[in-house]
Design a protein around this nucleic acid. Structure first.
Length: 429
RNA sequence: GCCGUCGUAGCUCAGUCCGGUAGAGCCCCCGACUGUUAAUCGGGUGGUCUGCGGUUCGAAUCCGCACGACGGCGCCA
């Protein structure tokens, strides 16, 4: 049994092989059937001639519809007339399963493809993205483990939120209200005083009806937290993990990214340091571009696009105004109006890939910040123990895995960065 | 939360403004063709026009309500 990928590399030319896969396209011309077969490694044409196989085999080749599962036996030859340059001249052709009429043809609407997502995942485009996703996830784990971080998991079911504004999915916990996690933040800050350098890659949930090309309600979050360091150290880790993921994809997923419109050279060039600017500097850059932003307002899609326009690496913005920032972010000792927080902003409309900060260590300051945001400090009492028992400087960030994949693969919509996307309008299939 | 677009055959759409009883291409089925590349050519099957209500002799078409989806903004990763 051989794979199509091996045949396309010329490893079996001239040999008689057996190949199994699914029908991608069929065409018949008189006494010849051309059956294009796909497997997990590529697509290849099998030629079935009436005179070369049994009548049953020929009839099966003529009748089998797209996505039928087949086993083909024959000689591999190089032939310019075949798509891809190679084909199998069959001496036997068996259908393992005759598929029903496959609903996916040409001319498909985005909406229909989402309805039949469970079938669309078989497409060349989707499987290519999934392979890149595999590589990106591997790179993230490798990066943190190589740098001495412990992988540790927070709970998914939580008693309350961590970031005030963001909405939570409510679950019925034996008659009591519980919520799906939107960040490991509170748990990370408890664990970082135990393990010092920790990371986690897992799902996060946001019940926000964000109808954009870069929001999912369920997404994979890579989060890290480190003790005894400030914002600068974790910015370097953010640059490091992103560049390592890009480098590994450039090395191992060349075919896939080229098909998606990215070159390996582009990804290889994504090396630290990234361009860095403070929020105040960003406002000046925007003003020069004719975009006025009132100080204190967060950077919106429009502004993020303007900042990354023409840039081949992500851009880092630091020192945001304290107003409307999460309560656990540390204020800048030099400028109490600012927080020691940062975002890593990707181009091509992907926007914020990473958001992070140094964390506030002072108990009273955090309590005050909670009150300012309308939260009851009593609900956070267990979390505040991290500021009662050996509170030390620490910092961390959260990275949207699908946003990173979207940026690497140059995807127009984040939902294609995950096999079965969850968006406000859809949670099926 | 705000704004916009759309819903007709398995799929992609026309028909809706100007009401008269449902169309095209692809898919699929049958036939022809021994090198096709989304093959081609001939024939055929296929529809509660999203749902409910209203106006009308008559509604896919006009009016109202509902449902569903897609797109953009805000918020975030």
């Amino acid at each position: 049994m051989v794979s199509i990928g091996e045949i396309l590399k010329g490893r079996h030319t001239g040999k008689v092989v057996e190949l199994r896969g699914w029908i991608y396209r069929t065409r018949t011309v008189g006494g010849k059937a051309f059956v294009v077969i796909r497997d997990a490694t590529g697509i290849l044409q099998a030629t079935i001639s009436r005179d070369a196989v049994s009548p049953e085999a020929f009839q099966a080749a003529e009748k089998a519809l797209i996505e039928s599962a087949v086993v083909v036996h024959g000689k591999v030859v190089a032939d310019k007339r075949a798509p891809g340059g190679y084909e199998i001249q069959s001496d036997d052709f068996k259908v393992v399963h005759f598929a029903e009429k496959f609903p996916i043809q040409e001319d498909l609407s985005e909406e229909f493809l989402l309805d039949v997502r469970h079938l669309w995942v078989r497409s060349q485009k989707m499987t290519g993205i999934f392979r890149v996703r595999h590589t990106v996830f591997g790179a993230v784990h490798e990066y943190f483990r190589e740098h001495g971080f412990w992988e540790v998991q927070p709970p998914m079911i939580t008693p309350a939120g961590s970031e005030g504004g963001a909405t939570l999915f409510e679950v019925d916990y034996f008659g009591r209200k519980a919520f799906l996690t939107q960040s490991w933040q509170l748990y990370a800050e408890a664990l970082v005083l135990a393990m010092e350098k920790i990371y986690y890659v897992g799902p996060s949930f946001r019940a926000e009806k964000s109808r954009t090309t870069r929001h999912l309600t369920e997404y994979w979050h890579a989060e890290m937290e480190e003790a005894w360091v400030g914002m600068d150290a974790v910015i370097r880790h953010a640059e490091g993990v992103i560049s390592q993921a890009c480098a590994l994809v450039a090395e191992e997923r060349v075919e896939e990214i080229v098909a998606l419109g990215r070159t390996p050279e582009f990804l290889k060039a994504v090396k630290p340091p990234f361009e860095r600017m403070t929020y105040d500097e960003a406002l000046k850059v925007l003003k020069a571009k004719g975009i006025e932003v009132e100080w204190g307002k967060d950077l919106r899609t429009l502004e993020e696009r303007a900042l990354t326009e023409g840039k081949s690496k992500p851009v880092i913005v630091t020192h945001y105004p304290r107003v409307s920032q999460a309560f656990y972010k540390a204020r800048d000792p030099k400028h109490p109006d600012l927080v020691l927080g940062f975002d890593v902003i990707g181009g091509d409309g992907v926007g914020e890939i990473v958001g992070g900060s140094e964390r506030e260590t002072d108990l009273e300051t955090i309590k005050k910040a909670l009150l300012e945001q309308g939260e009851d400090p009593k609900a956070y009492d267990w979390y505040l123990d991290s500021r009662r028992f050996g509170s030390v400087q620490h910092a961390g960030f959260g990275m949207g895995m699908e946003r990173l994949i979207q940026w690497i693969c140059k995807l127009g919509h984040i939902r294609d960065a995950v096999p079965f996307p969850r968006t406000p309008g859809r949670f099926s299939p």
